[in-house]
Design a protein around this nucleic acid. Structure first.
Lengths: 222, 222
DNA sequence: CGCATTATATAACCTTGTTATGATACGTTG
DNA sequence: CAACGTATCATAACAAGGTTATATAATGCG
């Protein structure tokens, strides 16, 4: 543990947790060394002792965000309808983003609250590759199941998953930034877009519609 | 003039232009009142005299970004194949984002380089609504043409355009943030995703494929 | 126990947004 | 034309926040 996904009660985890909470409650403007330290009852030195500086702390916050996303996607049950599963993954993904929009923004944005970068231009395949990759894996697995079930044409599941992710991420960020305010986002954009995409991937229109209509039912087996 | 879209040579335009250039060349970390002022040979007071502060200046930079996006999308010709037009709009959109990723991030991100917000939580329908809406209109028009041509099922063009935008924006941001580095983004994600989406919208698979294969040809009429 | 390492606190330093104040340029007006 | 007011710009000071230096406690270990 420690390097794994548990929360922990040490100073590192406390600071990250405080940053996550403050992001949700007061926005990125209050993510400051002094504020975080005060929040956990320590001095600013804690930030430098445990992280090295604010950029590294923000990197840790970003990784925590991906861990939480992964945890939430892990809760989505695997049923005998992989297309319904995909829809539920999408809903869960959207929900995570809405619960802490600024955390989501930090996870995927190029800039950071302080103006510095989260760790240099290093490809995400290194630092947060493992965490963001884990969340991504849920989509790959679901895509693979849909292909095995004959709902999606035979092809590389990675490519399909990347398409799902693009659609989801694009919708979520546009919705969060208010660019879709004139529409009923869920029913006029996300759901039809999901159906359209699935039909293009090979699913029958009625099947895709029926499967996605089930996404709001209890998240139980079969 | 002034309130319209021309570049201009006054101090306001110079500061915005400097910010846009610096974003592209050195990233969001150097978007500072002192640096911008030095860049245009003025004192920091220029920022406050012409904008009121850094948040308002960043709002102006964001609007300039949308103006440039609109200008680039306006250059995409309207041909007799609306699906090809949509593909070319997508390519142009992606190109604009790649030419200045940090500007694109500023336009759509929730955070800003300095940690402050670009103008409060005001819905984008007010300040940059006009500029971002203008760029969005290109997609709505193309969607309407595709519907009129029978390539897309009869439906609300706004909904279709929002779907295109989500797909595009999601793909572009994931690509920019390096999350699609293991794939050939264009050929494994964007193009097939576009075809899948169009097929789901009602286009015939061969027609969608053929139309999107034309997007790289000269951007001329017919 | 003695010592090295870790952990924490205090204070100072530097950069940056901002404000206060003053000087200059320029158009307007009596 | 001269005086005035406004717009423009520069300088300097202030405040907030990241960072560093340094000192002090706590902890582990031989």
């Amino acid at each position: 543990m420690g390097t794994t996904g548990d929360v922990g009660t040490d100073m590192r985890s406390q600071l990250v947790a405080a940053a996550v909470s403050l992001l949700a409650e007061e926005g990125p403007g209050v993510i400051q060394a002094r504020r975080l330290a005060r929040e956990v009852g320590a001095s600013t030195m804690a930030v430098y002792h445990y992280f090295g500086g604010m950029p590294q702390l923000l990197t840790a916050v970003r990784e925590e965000g991906f861990r939480r996303l992964d945890a939430r996607l892990s809760e989505v049950a695997i049923t005998d309808d992989p297309v319904t599963d995909i829809g539920r993954l999408g809903l869960a993904y959207r929900q995570v983003a809405w619960e802490n929009p600024h955390l989501y923004d930090l996870m995927f944005g190029l800039s950071t609250p302080g103006g510095y970068r989260p760790e240099a231009h290093a490809p995400p395949a290194e630092s947060d590759g493992s965490s963001s990759q884990r969340a991504y894996t849920h989509l790959v697995d679901a895509a693979a199941r849909a292909i095995r079930a004959g709902r999606v044409r035979e092809q590389d599941p990675d490519s399909v998953a990347a398409q799902f992710w693009s659609v989801l991420h694009g919708y979520v960020t546009l919705e969060l930034s208010g660019h879709l305010d004139q529409l009923d986002g869920l029913n006029q954009v996300l759901i039809p877009m999901g159906i359209n995409h699935l039909v293009g991937l090979g699913d029958a229109p009625e099947d895709a519609t029926n499967s996605l209509e089930r996404i709001n039912t209890a998240n139980a087996e079969s």
